[in-house]
Design a protein around this nucleic acid. Sequence first.
DNA 1: GATCGCAATTTTTTT
DNA 2: AATTGCGATC
Length: 763
Amino acid sequence: MSSEHLLASLNPEQQEAVVSTEGPLLILAGAGSGKTRVLVHRLAYLVQEKGVDPASLLAVTFTNKAAGEMRERVERLLGLGHSGLWVSTFHSTCVRILRRDIGALGRDQNFVIYDDSDSLGLIKQVLKRHNLDPKIVEPRRLRWKFDQWKNEGVLPDRAMELSTDLEEERSAELYETYQRMLFEANALDFGDLLLQTVVLFKEHPEVLELYRQRFQFVLVDEYQDTNTVQYQWVKQLVSGHGNLCVVGDPDQSIYAWRGANLRNILDFERDYPDAKVVRLEQNYRSTQPILEGASALVANNIERKSKRLYTEREGGELITLFEANTDREEAQYVVREILTLQREDGRDLSEIAIFYRTNAQSRTFEEELLKYNVPYVIVGGVRFYERAEVKDALAYLRVLINSADEMGLRRIVNNPPRGIGRTTLDRAAEMGREAGGGLLQGLRRFASDGPARSSGKVKAFLELIDGLAREIQDLGPGEAIARVLDASGYLRQLEKDGSPEAEGRIENLRELVSSAEEFKAENIEELMEDSSERSLIELFLDQVALVSDLDQADLGEARVSLMTTHSAKGLEFPWVYLVGLEEGLLPHAASSHDESGIEEERRLCYVGMTRAMEKLTLTCAAERMRFGKRSHSMPSRFLREIPFEYIELKSAPKRRLPRYGDHEGFESRSGGQSRSSSWGKPSAERPKTKRRSDGERQLDTSYSQESSHEGDSGAGTRVRHPVYGLGTVLEVSGDGENRKLKIRFERAGVKKILARYANLERA
DNA sequence: GATCGCAATTTTTTT
DNA sequence: AATTGCGATC
């Protein structure tokens, strides 16, 4: 494609952003201003017009999805295949660097990557070693603290210096132990990937120089979300040539809680004095009411570079605000709207998205969508690679490749049960420490010196591991997983179980094997080109550690998309429902303590609103279930900040008193649900309302004790659960509001359910 | 050492 | 409302 073509479809500001290739450049790209397009064209321009070798370009993003999209579009534009162009996330870029050069830090190339739960487990080990009670020193809090330090680029020594009180000092000590144990386990956690790369570059300028030479042009996406280490990392890489292009929008900074520093983008011109700034302020995405409403909202932030986004699109529907009485009603409204859109307007479901603040909110929407058979996909949420059986299988591989991996080893040593319990493990760990080694070494000692009864079991386990380690060397990732599951007895254990849950797990493991096969098929060529010694198994483990479901979700299918507003950043949909606009939820209570917290929540709301292209609907509910209890909430302050002229108000009929009867929602459904009786609230317990002569309603709090007939809820009854589907009651226990049901579901297996909360229908 | 049952906690967002 | 963790019991 010629230069004219590369520039032809761009407006003057966009063109400037593309052709300003030398020196530092800040692109302030408002929502929907064609940012990705500009980046893609810029990369193509560098190669085609400036004759730059694709291999000397580095583009860094936050998500694999964004990276994948960018790479694909550039390669398509240039008609290139594998060109040596590096477009990847901060984390995977760092993994590639560390896999090659971490040896300079005296560490092993075969390190494992610990995810959040691995690192939480390790922190529990740290506490054990310090003889601290996890109830007093909370592991999660520590993890958060360590993470903050890592985001700030702070190592244990420095953390100690910075400590201002005793508690922080203690934490810094534990941080030190934690880092040492990570090292001993030959492991790096997420934060380490960045931090250790920065340390590597700092302590070994010759290594840094290598990468500086290679990457002549560096591009960073979503710069407003970078934290201090990422900032340092970028600075290290570009010092010298200074060819750094960063793109971002301060109004879309929503990761301060994870260490993102808004100052990185606000102070860019100070950090890179000869920086050029380009502003992209024309919005090509949203209709006027949506854009104006969102802009007016975010204008309430004090800490802000002012900006005026405009659109040439005129007209468009007003933003709808729906005020529901309950969360159930909120979900019903949205789902009915969706059904109408689909039936009457012929809209494709993939054009519709529902955004919420917390993952817990998805449940109600799922239930309603299921009831009406509306296909949907949850983006994010519980991830495939976080399921226990998947983690178990991967832990085997991890240990086989890196025998120091303590958390992996702890996970598999007695799984399936082999009679190696806590006592044995504690003793082995101690023996390992005495010998100056890790848990595995301890187990080896235990096998030879330990008490006869348990040492035999340990010995058998070690033989299994050693044998497998040899066997898998020549296997692909899929074959290796299959082999491990078979040889370890893991699969047999599940098969023997025979329960529907176990079958689900087996199914997930099959899926894991096939995704590993797929990985092999996709990457085998690249592996041939890649001179690194890493096997496909190792590359597969890296991939699963760094890839989230969000990256893999196929949004093209005809399904409604559900996700948190955080996950929605970077996406766009014609129809958007932004739900739960209530005080305490958006803005979230946990962020409402200071003004900067509120401002970030406001930006989050802004991000959600600006995803919408044609139609935006906001909803709130006066009452919702939280922690299994109903709680009341006020409409979000953000609703008042959107000018009324852009809003069309719709409200459910207001209630003067809480309606106890229909909070599960069946009675208020259209179409008559008389045959379904809700067990959620046995009728015996419902405070009754009775009509008084003056027409007012009054709560009658005297509960009558008519017991519900056993026939209704006894064992053998067929029921339908909104999520789990059809099932049969096996057992009933407890009374009144503590009534519990044990139900075997056809799809989901046996579950115990507290009747009060479950929306059960008789089937 | 494993299994069962109860209690406590959770919910802010995630590379 | 579900998961996790702990303690009691076998």
